[in-house]
């Protein structure tokens, strides 16, 4: 998982689009670049050869072009950010899909979940369904792109990685396990061009009936003891967690004992 190990033979023709959204700091609530989206931009920058021009990488946003957080994406070394201008409450799927088809994207990178709005993580799936492209969720890295096939490393729980081969074009959502985004510089951020295209989109009517409040703390689940007598309650409160009594191998030889352990490890699938 070294950052500069991937091989891209058709990088000159490869067209990568990173979709970015407006982020929100989890503690302060301030507007910022979204963590996963900036990792998607970082991955795109690395795939396009890190030549600072970022010519084959398009960073695309659907929403308000005056949004300040877009500048912090641009500060990662982009010359321009493409913005499809529409009302922030509108449904962005249709214009985004059309734009991706028009510009002939090969790889579309998004975050797993937005940090603002509904944050359902459905945008990559709906785009994939609409365009008929495959989607690879939770990508940690793109190892190589050769002959129209990409080798992608997927982040699994417990720090594991899975290698997946996928045909271009495809959509990938970038996990928090992907390489961290580079710092955003103020100068390039203010110099970057906002390439605005005004599009029309239908307003999301369903969302208007929803009620949105700051998150309440979730109640902790109480441990309900269904004991009938005082002795059972006492036991439930003081008992150590003990298994139902497993298999004990006492008199076997070391070879047999090791074999039993080995078989259990294999059965549970932890030996790979």
């Amino acid at each position: 998982m070294q950052p500069n190990q991937f091989k891209v033979d058709v990088a000159s023709k490869l067209k990568i689009v990173s979709l970015v959204s407006v982020g929100k700091h989890p503690q302060s609530g301030r507007v910022r670049r979204s963590d996963q989206d900036s990792r998607a931009v970082e991955l795109g920058l690395k795939l396009t050869g890190d030549n600072r021009s970022g010519e084959s990488l398009t960073v695309l946003h659907a929403g308000d072009p005056r949004e300040q957080s877009l500048r912090s994406y641009a500060g990662m070394g982009l010359k321009s950010v493409r913005v499809l201008q529409l009302d922030p409450s509108a449904d962005a799927i249709l214009p985004l899909g059309q734009h991706l088809l028009q510009c002939g994207a090969d790889i579309v990178l998004t975050g797993v979940r937005a940090e603002s709005g509904e944050s359902s993580g459905m945008v990559p799936y709906q785009l994939a369904e609409k365009l008929g492209w495959p989607i690879v969720p939770r990508v940690a890295n793109i190892v190589s792109v050769e002959g129209g096939v990409a080798e992608v490393l997927q982040a699994l729980p417990r720090g594991q990685r899975r290698s997946v081969m996928v045909q271009l074009p495809f959509i990938a959502s970038v996990d928090s396990a992907a390489p961290e985004a580079r710092q955003s510089a103020f100068g390039p951020a203010s110099r970057a061009l906002m390439d605005i295209e005004v599009v029309s989109a239908s307003v999301d009517m369903t969302r208007e009936s929803w009620e949105e409040v700051p998150a309440r703390k979730r109640p902790k689940r109480l441990k309900v003891v269904k004991a009938k007598t005082a002795a059972e309650r006492f036991k439930a409160a003081t008992a150590k967690s003990q298994g139902e009594g497993g298999k004990v191998m006492k008199n076997e030889s070391a070879v047999e004992q090791a074999q039993a352990i080995f078989d259990l490890l294999k059965e549970e699938g932890v030996l790979r």
């Binding site: 929100k24 009620e211 949105e212 700051p214």
Partner: peptide, 13 residues
Amino acid sequence: CRGAGGTTDITRN
């Protein structure tokens, strides 16, 4: 349900 990266609660049908 939680929205906006877990910082809001959305009540919906």
